[in-house]
Write a protein that binds this DNA or RNA. Sequence first.
DNA 1: AGCACA
Length: 259
Amino acid sequence: MALLERKDMADVNNNNNNNSSTGTEVSSNMTIYINNLNENIKIDELKKALHAVFSQFGKILEILAFKTLKHKGQAWVVFEDVQSASNAMRQMQSFPFYDKPMRIQYAKTKSDIVAKADGTFVPREKRRRHEEKGKKKKDQHDTNQVGVGLTPAYGGAYGTTPPLSQIPYLGGVKSMVPEAPAPPNNILFIQNLPNETTTMMLQMLFQQYTGFKEVRMVETKPGIAFVEYGDEMQSTVAMHALQGFKLQQYSMLITYAKK
DNA sequence: AGCACA
């Protein structure tokens, strides 16, 4: 899966522009800057969902997002190393997240948490404050149903995820693959989910596919869920699209539900 | 659209 290697190790610790000709390129950075995020998602939920989806690329030191006008729809995900950030950027580029494709770039500057770690941190006022000129405000409203409360499932410890991707295959599921594949069904059976998974997170992933009806989780059985579509063709498309999708270090296993 | 350090 790590089929993308880069020259990134060279400039891990500086933010020089590599490409001064275009002015559009930003040097690699341990932090990715994401925009085009759905602005209706509450910050807390947004951060959790981002963590769920990005922790597969490496240890996340911090996720920053703000709800101010100037910073809505944007987030910074700080990884432990550039390689993780690079992989995250490439692999999740344009990923549909709450109905909108993520736009991911390297952050322009080093994150404070990183600067503090390497001793180069300088307090705020020394830095270039970004001044903003008046802008016309356009409407922004997406209407999707993601406003339901989310339990504070994370231990808050972003740093507890194992190092990089090549994590064996976390078990926890009895019969990982059924002997014979179940016959097609408009209901999908999802296994091997992390315990922290919420209905909202799954909805976010599955509702992008046509025919999505609902997600059902079974409180008494963590790690599994059912996702219903209008018909078998629709559920099949979603199954193939999301098969093996990683939430934290867990790879989703999707099969048709038994009838 | 919008690159911060809640």
